[in-house]
Write a protein that binds this DNA or RNA. Structure first.
Length: 580
RNA sequence: CCGCCGGUAGCAUAGCCGGAUAAUGCAUCGGAUUCCGAUUCCGAAGAUCGGGGGUUCGAAUCCCUUCCGGCGGGCCA
């Protein structure tokens, strides 16, 4: 909360508690512990600026009806020296507080004073938090799901930073393991097909079929010719991977940069394999007796770990049995570690780097991996609850109102590269953050490409541009803006002005709510609300008046709106236009 | 079969750690605008919150049950 809002709420809370104390002293209330209550902005502004459910929460504690408690409180309420003017009992027993006129003026002053810092808070207390997102396989092009993950992850990181966390963003590059072998195999087949003809070498079902693989193989052929045809399969595949993988990774970095995502860390999975961390991690599990060998593979006792965890939570044996928990392979019988083993080592590495928390953004299709990942962290002696997984629903691509099916096998998909070329990045970044992560998104290509768009990002940008024009127009007329005194700001008392100020005062709160829920969509919604409230205000209240005091007061309010919109757009790395 | 996520107006969504008249955008219909820039604003209509039970002073929200949709249950990632 902004300092002022925090103060206003704290004052009200103290006044309520003091009144309850007096009631006890008067012998009206019995002496007993009282339940916690909330003070919040009511949905309907007719119910005051702030509302408390204290009387209802206390009904059971005091064995009295909520309305009776509420009236006892209001009779003893002392509101002098608070921002609140009066308090009314309403409905089933709400205590509704109405703030005095100076409050709004103070908010405006506060916003103008904080400027680009308005909205920031120390909610996160500087805790170090790692946000990992996209982490696409470097074996092929990125797709729409990665686009959503990118917009979500980058904006979530920004929100957390605004809320006072020390944030580090990260991309995990799966440049080792099974899929790299498959990558080498696929490249190899395309390479040989290039010289021997498509019919000469069969492309297995279980390989990457995409055009991108063909393209890389041909690039390789252009450089090395057929010189690798005679070499061993192993040597040829290694050379192909060594050639193609860095190019793919470079492409991902280019695309992310184009998408305005700049990672703090690009973490290579291969590091874990090469420096022994993976083996170390597996050894920890071994030493704890949580592994066994079967069929030549090394298994992790996942069912035991998760089963025990559930028992602690009081689940019955029946319930646990029904889950059919399974153990997991760490080291395959061919000696290669699984993705899961690498992932445990990776998260161990993250926490060893000093992060208090780690957030992973995963596609919802990975949800089955969540419990065992957290359990494994517990098992190696870290607290799995320090890892939060944000599951993101996938993107349904639409064209002409029809679903466009994406297939990894045939390699036919709309890639992130296509998307970034066709659609304004402002729109994409905003759009993918208009729904909460758990809600699926239909992405209509035609609509998005047609740019005239109903995309609300334009609505917010327009409001900002409009404010800029107001200032320049008035300046042309010789009515240059001058900072208002607190007294002049009291002139802002129209309904639309008060609504707008109240909304602007909620900014910091909205940021912390978005941070708490890991949901940047709360902020895009808020931005639209602010733009709407501004347009209403501008429609109802004339800014260009001859009354300089009123004019400057209204311009001050415009400046506040501009500040908030600009802060949001900047935070989300969306263009902040002065004209459109 | 088991599990995870979702089901709210014609469409798309918010509200979900219990609270006041269920909110917003699009679409539909009607209206407004002597300040910047009509990419604006106002109003109307539109919802048995998937169905059924339960807990409670109070349920879209919590519990149980059931139906529908998406996803997962690999020595894939």
């Amino acid at each position: 909360m902004s300092v002022l809002v925090k103060q206003a709420v704290a004052e009200i809370r103290r006044a309520i508690m003091d009144a309850a104390g007096v009631a006890v002293a008067d012998g009206v209330f019995p002496e007993c512990p009282l339940s916690d209550f909330v003070i919040e902005v009511p949905a309907n502004k007719a119910n005051g600026d702030y509302s408390s459910n204290a009387a209802m929460m206390w009904a059971r504690d005091l064995h009295k009806s909520p309305r009776e408690i509420a009236s006892v409180i209001t009779e003893r309420l002392v509101l002098a020296d608070t921002f609140a003017d009066r308090c009314e009992v309403a409905g089933p027993g709400f205590l509704n507080f109405y703030l005095g006129e100076t409050y709004g003026a103070c908010i405006v002053e506060d916003i103008l004073e904080k400027g680009a810092d308005y909205g920031k808070s120390d909610y996160g207390k500087g805790a170090k938090i790692n946000v990992e997102f996209v982490s696409a396989n470097p074996t092929g092009p990125m797709h729409m799901g990665n686009a959503r993950g990118g917009a979500l992850g980058d904006c979530l990181a920004a929100v957390l930073e605004y809320a006072g966390y020390e944030v580090s963003s990260e991309f995990y590059i799966n440049d080792a393991g099974n899929q790299i072998d498959k990558f080498g195999l696929s490249l190899d087949i395309r390479y040989r097909q290039h010289f021997l003809g498509e019919d000469a070498v069969e492309l297995p079902e279980d390989s990457y079929h995409g055009e991108d693989i063909k393209m890389r193989a041909e690039e390789f052929a252009a450089v090395y010719g057929d010189s690798y045809l005679g070499k061993s399969e192993d040597e040829r595949r290694k050379a192909l991977v060594a050639f193609a993988l860095p190019k793919n990774i470079e492409d991902m970095k280019t695309n992310m940069a184009k998408y305005r995502i700049v990672y703090d860390t690009w973490f290579h999975e291969s590091v874990l394999h090469n420096d022994g961390e993976l083996a170390e991690t597996v050894n920890i599990l071994k030493e704890k007796g949580l592994t066994y060998e079967k069929d030549g593979a090394l298994w992790y006792r996942n069912s035991e770990v998760l089963g025990n965890k559930l028992r602690e939570k009081g689940k019955s044996e029946d319930e646990i049995a029904r889950l059919e928990l399974k153990d997991e392979v760490l080291i395959r019988s061919n000696g290669n570690p699984t993705y899961f083993a690498a992932d445990i080592a990776y998260h161990r590495n993250k926490f060893a780097r000093g992060f208090d928390r780690a957030i992973d953004i995963w596609g919802a299709d990975h949800h089955g991996h969540v419990a065992r990942m957290k359990g494994a962290l517990d098992a190696i002696g870290l607290d799995g609850d320090r890892l939060d997984i944000v599951l993101m629903q996938l993107v349904n691509l639409k064209k002409d109102g029809q679903n466009v099916k994406m297939s990894k096998r045939t390699g036919k998909a709309v890639t992130l590269t296509d998307l970034l070329e066709d659609i304004p990045i402002d729109a994409v970044r905003f759009f993918f953050n208009t729904r909460e992560p758990g809600s699926p998104i239909d992405f209509d290509l035609d609509l998005a490409i047609s740019q005239n768009s109903e995309n609300p990002v334009y609505y917010c940008q327009y409001a900002h541009a409009r404010i800029c024009s107001i200032f320049s127009k008035l300046e042309e007329e010789g009515k240059k803006y001058e900072k208002s005194s607190l007294k002049d700001l009291l002139l802002l008392k129209e309904e639309e002005e008060k609504d707008l100020i109240a909304l602007l005062s909620a900014f910091t709160d909205r940021i912390t709510a978005a941070a708490k829920n890991y949901d940047p969509a709360k902020i895009t919604k808020y931005a639209v609300e602010v733009a709407t409230a501004f347009h209403k205000f501008y429609n109802a209240c004339r800014v260009n008046t001859e009354d300089a005091a009123l004019r400057n007061a209204r311009l001050s309010l415009c400046l506040c709106v501009k500040t908030v919109l600009s802060n949001i757009l900047t935070m989300f790395r969306i263009t902040v236009p002065e004209r459109m």
